[in-house]
Computed example of a mutant assay.
Amino acid sequence: MSTQQSIINYIAGVWLDGDADGLDGQVPLADLNIIDSAGIFDLVHYLQGDFRITVPLQEIVPANFRTVDAIAALVERLQRKGESVR
């Protein structure tokens, strides 16, 4: 399963009663009130557990959580960064 699809499934399961219809990589999550600022911290917890990354506090900014594609890019960037320090 792709990073994007995993994130979509999680968002749909937690905030959309399991209904991922219409949710894709470009849907503006905050603009459509899918996830609020408190929900971002729930999402960060999920990302850290599921993708085995650490999301630094300075990365928890609206731009990184605007869309599923932005979240996936953050995850992939943090995974690459983690690999480079091992």
Results as ranks from 00 to 15, higher is better:
Ile8Pro: 10
Arg52Pro: 01
Pro56Cys: 09
Ser6Asn: 11
Glu59Ile: 00
Leu78Arg: 05
Asp50Ile: 00
Arg77Tyr: 05
Ile8Glu: 13
Thr3Gln: 00
Tyr10Thr: 07
Ser2Lys: 07
Ile11Leu: 10
Ile60His: 01
Gln79Arg: 14
Val75Arg: 02
Gln5Lys: 12
Asn9Asp: 15
Leu29Gln: 07
Ala63Gln: 11
Ala12Pro: 10
Phe51Ile: 09
Ile60Arg: 02
Arg77Leu: 04
Arg86Tyr: 12
Gln79Trp: 05
Ala72Lys: 04
Ala38Asn: 03
Leu74Ala: 05
Val85Arg: 08
Leu78Phe: 05
Pro56Glu: 09
Gln4Leu: 07
Gly39Lys: 09
Trp15Lys: 15
Arg66Thr: 13
Tyr46Glu: 10
Asp24Leu: 07
Leu32Lys: 06
Ala70Val: 09
Leu57Asp: 08
Arg52Phe: 04
Gly25Leu: 04
Ser37Phe: 02
Leu57Gln: 11
Trp15Phe: 15
Gly25His: 03
Gly22Val: 06
Gly39Trp: 09
Ala70Met: 02
Arg86Leu: 12
Ala38Cys: 05
Gln4Gly: 06
Arg66Leu: 11
Ser2Phe: 07
Leu43Phe: 08
Val27Trp: 06
Val85Thr: 15
Val44Gln: 08
Asn33Ala: 14
Asp17Cys: 06
Val44Asp: 05
Arg66Tyr: 07
Ser2His: 06
Glu59Asn: 10
Gly18Asn: 08
Asp21Ser: 13
Ala20Glu: 10
Glu83His: 10
Gln48His: 01
Ile7Thr: 03
Ile7Pro: 03
